[in-house]
Nucleic acid binder design. Structure first.
Lengths: 115, 115
DNA sequence: CAACTATATGCATATCCATATATATACCAT
DNA sequence: ATGGTATATATATGGATATGCATATAGTTG
């Protein structure tokens, strides 16, 4: 379940906003794709994902050694709407696009054949 | 002008969300009304208002000794939309209503005659 | 000028939080 | 079992920030 204080805490960090924007755009991504796209360290990304999972924003699916994150389907409408506005509005869109572009050129992405 | 990092920083604090919800509801409020409604100290509220003013969310109008705060008219649409969703969605609405109720019973509010 | 009110700010402190590094866990293959 | 890959976590640390208390500023009135 979503905790409102935790929800807005999540949005206050730029790394988490970048991760959310990517996941929103792609639907589902694994940790390796996320920290590759952001050019960040694996522990850093993993920790931020844990924060968002515990806050109720993300849900997890394990497939072999890979762990895939997506938006939690139980997210209230108002929260999902805020995430959409966050990802599409304002001056930070270029940064998000840069992340998406880097993800697009990532070699050996998992599951790319089946999606 | 609005700084995006500062914008989401603003939303991560519950006191600031309460202040924003009240201002959104009433249009314009002075500092004394705000810290009365929230039952918070005057320096605390003044500090938070300064943060929001410097972030580009609020604009200020002075009238005698009173200082009135309102939403900055230059706020981008996506930011205003997020504020609206924040103020109306979810489990924190009762808290906001409590603040509004307390404001409604405040004695000797400034300018109540002309609004 | 002085006194009063409303608001802002300086300072000290405590707490939270993001990050780096290192290490642990989980899963798969051989 | 061993080795390899993907992910999570433990610990330490520096930095940001919310808050209380005291004080300063700005405006009004006498």
């Amino acid at each position: 379940m979503l905790h409102e204080q935790a929800f807005f805490n999540v949005l206050s960090d730029e790394t988490r906003r970048r991760l959310l924007a990517l996941i929103l755009r792609e639907g589902e991504l694994c940790v390796c794709e996320l920290f590759y796209a952001l050019e960040a360290s694996q522990p850093k990304v993993s920790r931020h994902l844990a924060v968002m999972r515990e806050a109720g924003l993300l849900s997890v699916r394990r497939e072999g050694t890979w762990v895939f994150y997506r938006l939690d389907a139980r997210l209230p409408q108002w929260a999902a709407d805020i995430l959409g506005l966050m990802a599409q509005g304002g001056a930070r869109v270029p940064l998000f696009q840069r992340d998406a572009q880097r993800l697009a050129v990532m070699p050996e992405r998992p599951m790319t054949c089946c999606r």
